[in-house]
């Protein structure tokens, strides 16, 4: 079983002349234990694809199985629970809550899942220590550098130990060195038999971290290349 298995997925926006077909019978696979990249030009449908995969958007047609669940058959309530328990998100603009400190931001997925605040904060602090931000627990996002913010966002995505992590341009706003550090953390997380990481990126420098690269154009996966998994490099 694959972590994500999409077959002939279709998704369009708008109607009539304004209709845009973002996904055209797209087939896509992401395997457990792999870091899968989706690459392609702007407007080719990458973000729409990960939105559908993560259960944020409904596909108009096609078959979508994520972590063994048929997404089309899940009710809204079950889909929320599915996201809450199984999916971690990393956004290009970090999307940290500006009023919360670093450790509180990381704790949010646990709070959403109903974990007690004290316990959630303790667990978040431990994870921030692991990403070398132990000294910035009480810092607000505005007091952190871009790289630090993305590490906080990454810790937030991983705090509830999700089986699927979806990242949208996670290194776009980072310098090369910081981007490398973030990708290394993601690759480390992916290297587990029950986990998968999907990364949408324009950043060709980061493609070397990929185990699989799905090249997308005009709403379709046009080519998929696989690379050997180098666990030491990761």
């Amino acid at each position: 079983m694959h972590a994500v298995d999409c077959t002939a997925i279709q998704k369009s926006f708008g109607t009539g002349e304004a209709r845009v077909d973002a996904l055209r019978e797209t087939d896509f696979v992401a395997r457990f234990g792999e870091l899968t990249f989706i690459a392609g030009p702007s407007g080719c449908g990458k973000t729409t694809l990960i939105s559908v995969v993560a259960g944020l958007l409904d596909a108009d047609a096609g078959n979508l199985r994520v972590l063994g669940a048929q997404m089309g058959e899940l009710s809204e309530r079950k889909r929320l629970a599915f996201r809450r328990e199984n999916v971690g998100f990393v956004f290009q603009q970090y999307n940290l809550l500006p009023a919360l400190t670093a450790v509180e931001n990381v704790a949010v997925p646990l709070l959403v899942a109903g974990v007690r605040r004290r316990e959630a904060i303790d667990r978040a602090a431990v994870l921030l220590e692991r990403v070398d931000l132990g000294s910035r627990l009480a810092a607000l996002p505005s007091q952190l550098s871009g790289g630090q913010q993305q590490r906080v966002a990454l810790a937030r995505a991983l705090i509830h130990d999700p089986k699927l992590v979806v990242c949208d341009e996670p290194t776009a706003a980072l310098d090369h060195k910081t981007g490398d550090a973030v990708m290394t953390m993601l690759a480390t997380h992916a290297l587990s038999e029950d986990r998968a990481v999907i990364v949408v990126t324009h950043d060709s420098r980061m493609l070397r971290f990929a185990h699989r690269i799905a090249h997308m154009d005009d709403g379709r996966i046009v080519r998929t290349e696989t690379r050997p998994i180098d666990k030491e490099a990761a």
Binding site: A54, L56, R77, L80, A81, F82, R83, R84, E85, V87, F89, F91, N95, L97, P98, V108, P109, V112, A113
Partner: peptide, 12 residues
């Protein structure tokens, strides 16, 4: 954006 982020994380 913050509410959207929470929604994405599974907040009902």
């Amino acid at each position: 954006r913050q509410f959207g982020t929470l929604k994405a994380m599974g907040v009902a």
